[in-house]
């Protein structure tokens, strides 16, 4: 599959869209850096933020795998069973919080289940449109040439960068991100405070098993 995709990419880009029914799963590595997150908090002084960043360094990162299952019309994003930090806790198991995000792009509906401040919430709504600004940057992510799009959340004071694949005409993406002409393969929030990137080329292909979980 990977070979086919790469061939499609560089030799016969025309053939790729013969497979109009894309479906599968992408596993994302989600990295959260709380020293960088803290840097955006207004009530902590500059000196304290600098001290935290200096003392914690690379230890301030927290990693997890999340899976995105998709078809051209629906997607589901949820936590993976696999641990992304095999060396951290020697099989110690933490409680999993309730978490999934479902999108139906045909009906324009979303269903999110999240645990927030100790309470469980089920959010059913229309998909909230994101005002994406398309940039002229290209980059390869997991064998796909991606274009850059940016957006800003003024409420949370976040700047987000997404890289979407030119050759996967799927509106889905990780977390609450969607609505671009191609599938979102990489996300960066506030310059590394949180990042999402596909686990590749560890897997045989980006879509490494069918979308059974949908």
């Amino acid at each position: 599959m990977k070979k086919i995709l790469l061939n499609l990419l560089f030799i016969a880009p025309i053939a790729i869209n013969a497979q109009q029914n894309f479906e599968g799963m992408v596993q994302y590595l989600v990295v959260q850096n709380w020293a960088k997150k803290l840097a955006a908090v207004p009530y902590i002084s500059k000196q304290q933020k600098e001290r935290v960043a200096y003392m914690w360094g690379s230890r301030s990162e927290w990693k997890a795998y999340n899976n995105l299952y998709f078809t051209p019309t629906v997607s589901k994003y949820e936590a993976s069973e696999e641990s992304a930090e095999p060396n951290a806790d020697d099989n110690y198991s933490w409680r999993k919080e309730l978490f999934f995000m479902k999108r139906d792009f045909d009906k324009n509906t979303m269903t999110d289940a999240i645990e927030h401040l100790g309470k469980n919430y089920l959010i059913e709504d229309e998909i909230q449109p994101i005002e994406w600004k398309i940039q002229n940057d290209l980059k390869e992510v997991a064998g796909h040439i991606c274009m850059k799009a940016v957006t800003e959340d003024t409420l949370k004071n976040q700047k987000m960068v997404a890289w979407f694949a030119q050759d996967i005409p799927i509106k889905a993406g990780p977390d609450q991100f969607s609505g671009l002409p191609g599938m979102i393969l990489e996300v960066d929030i506030n310059d590394g405070a949180a990042t999402c990137s596909p686990v590749f080329p560890k897997r045989r292909s980006l879509f490494w098993y069918p979308a059974m979980a949908l």
Partner: peptide, 20 residues
Amino acid sequence: PFAMVMLLNPKDSALIQFAQ
């Protein structure tokens, strides 16, 4: 075939609509 075509706001490149 199957090129991504986007309509953007000329002021800030905000995505308005897209088609293939």
